[in-house]
Write a protein that binds this DNA or RNA. Structure first.
Lengths: 145, 145
DNA sequence: GTTCCTGCAAAAGATTTGCAGTGAC
DNA sequence: GTCACTGCAAATCTTTTGCAGGAAC
């Protein structure tokens, strides 16, 4: 299992290797994401950073997320409400998917080896290169039951 | 298998049953979607209708899509480019998923019983009510291979 | 000192809403 | 005749871009 500070070090290593400098906004976004296990939108990141006394321009947040995305350091999650969310992408490849509660809007993460196997078999059957996949379930969470 | 005109009749029946009147824009959008097997965005619908000599206000298109969505008559598909796409939702429940080509952006539809079974088992295991699911694969299509 | 990074403000693109006119029932 | 449906225009919301100042190296 890949931990939080591992991800942060990995990110810094990849970006340094690609010749990028460090900067305040970048560090703040990476720090925040490293401490979150589930996906956050750009606005949620902005609000969280402001609440922590580390206000950061929204444009910078989008730029950091774009950069991280280009280097496969974050995973982009869209659940159908018109907002993109981002979460740390771990180099080992382990990942989870999401259930969206239709009543309260909450995002619940889960993983399922059987689902991963089914997608692997499907990729083989399709005969196309499949780099990435995303599964979104829609229903009601435990609280809203 | 549920055919195209079946879907159209189903839509009209559901909407009439819910007390909605008919109107030009609604008919035009329903007609168009009934003849499409894969997902279209609001702008693509607008362009297609204009090309057919049946121009329709974009706001009306969004309103029709919203109405159809509320009645589970269309399925909303988002593949990560910031645009919502819509396709007919068949009452029988049969549906397909999508592969997005990262090179040309093309949307390729597929279905896979094994994947559906895996999702069914997963839903049972989670112990939550799962009404709906969506799978998006990302890779390269046959043409871009 | 050069070049990248940041933040503000403006722009772009998708979607929603307000409102007056038209059409369905 | 009433009330829903439509289309335009304006507003809203998310995300992107331009640019000037500041920071990393």
């Amino acid at each position: 299992m890949t931990g939080r500070s591992d991800w942060s070090s990995h990110v810094h290593a990849v970006l340094a290797g690609a010749g990028f400098r460090r900067g305040g906004a970048r560090e703040r976004v990476i720090d925040l994401l490293a401490g979150e296990s589930c996906a956050l939108s750009a606005v949620e990141i902005e609000d969280a950073l402001r609440a922590k006394g580390r206000p950061t321009g929204r444009a910078s947040i989008y730029r950091v997320l774009e950069l991280l995305g280009e280097h496969d350091l974050v995973e982009r999650v869209e659940v159908g409400d018109g907002v993109a969310r981002f979460e740390p992408a771990h180099p080992g490849g382990e990942h989870h998917h999401h259930l969206v509660c239709d009543r309260c809007g909450r995002l619940v993460a889960f993983d399922d080896p059987g689902l991963e196997r089914a997608i692997g078999r499907l990729s083989d059957r399709l005969g196309m290169r499949v780099d990435h996949h995303e599964v979104v379930l829609r229903g009601s969470c435990e609280t809203c039951g």
